[in-house]
């Protein structure tokens, strides 16, 4: 009974992968997930490469934005699609290959067991992730900012690995289309009173994921985007 595998209903757990120009990695990511997780939904966010075709050939259900709207918008599209398709649990997962699929069972388990509404992956709860120094600094600054603004004492804010219940996904409404959605989601967890827990996860830093990751100037953009979204929502 304590075996996590018995608690997680994989057939009704949908993996949502927002993807923008991820053709080099998305096929391998989907194939890595599919044997164990039958519902993999790739939201192609208006990619100009063959992301959608590659994901579909690998076996994912593909939802395709006609034009690029940002990762937050793609995630909300994925949530809407999965809820309409009858998802009981939803997982957000990155398409750049930095998340190992072995982490999912442990991530979904507290949500499936009813111990919390949302499980947030954290790369800082153990030493398995080799986070580059500059990124570690930016992420730590983001953690402090989030703790001050949302009041959530999280250890990682911009980690794409999360698991949530259907009820939580129905209540969340991501309006920040671009990267500020990660902070917005934490804000909504706080304001909606959703229960949450952090789960240690490993993040792999590959050349591709480093190239696609956020840099210093991007962090500033995210901050400006976040503030504007709070002002105008």
């Amino acid at each position: 009974m304590n075996d996590p595998a018995t608690l997680v209903p994989r057939a009704s757990t949908f993996i949502v992968i927002p993807a923008y120009n991820e053709a080099p990695t998305i096929g391998a990511v989907v194939r890595d997930l599919l044997p164990g997780w039958p519902r993999v939904v790739v939201v192609d966010d208006g990619s100009t490469d063959r992301t959608a075709d590659t994901a579909a050939r690998a076996g994912a259900e593909v939802v395709r934005h006609a034009v690029n709207r940002g990762q937050g918008a793609a995630l909300q599209t994925g949530f809407d699609y999965c809820l309409a398709a009858g998802a009981r649990f939803l997982v957000t997962f990155d398409g750049d290959g930095q998340h190992p699929s072995e982490e999912l069972e442990r991530l979904v388990e507290p949500v499936a067991a009813g111990r919390c509404d949302i499980a947030l992956g954290s790369r800082f709860l153990d030493a398995r992730s080799d986070v580059p120094a500059l990124r570690r600094l930016l992420l730590k600054a983001a953690v402090i900012f989030t703790r001050v603004v949302s009041g959530l004492r999280v250890t990682d804010t911009h980690n794409g690995l999360r698991a949530l219940t259907r009820d939580a996904a129905e209540r969340l409404e991501l309006r920040a289309d671009r990267m500020a959605h990660a902070s917005e989601l934490l804000d909504q967890i706080s304001s909606l009173g959703l229960s949450w827990a952090e789960v240690p996860v490993r993040v792999r830093y590959t050349r591709h994921s480093r190239a696609k990751g956020q840099r210093g100037l991007d962090a500033l953009r995210v901050l400006v985007d976040y503030v504007l979204n709070r002002v105008f929502r």
Binding site: R39, G59, A66, Q76
Partner: peptide
């Protein structure tokens, strides 16, 4: 614009699935 793009994307995906082109079986 985001709302329109989202609705269109979901409607197209559902249409593909109903037509049999998007199910996991079609891999």
């Amino acid at each position: 614009l985001t709302q329109v793009v989202r609705r269109l994307a979901i409607a197209e995906a559902r249409h593909r699935i109903e037509a049999g082109g998007g199910e996991p079986a079609a891999r």
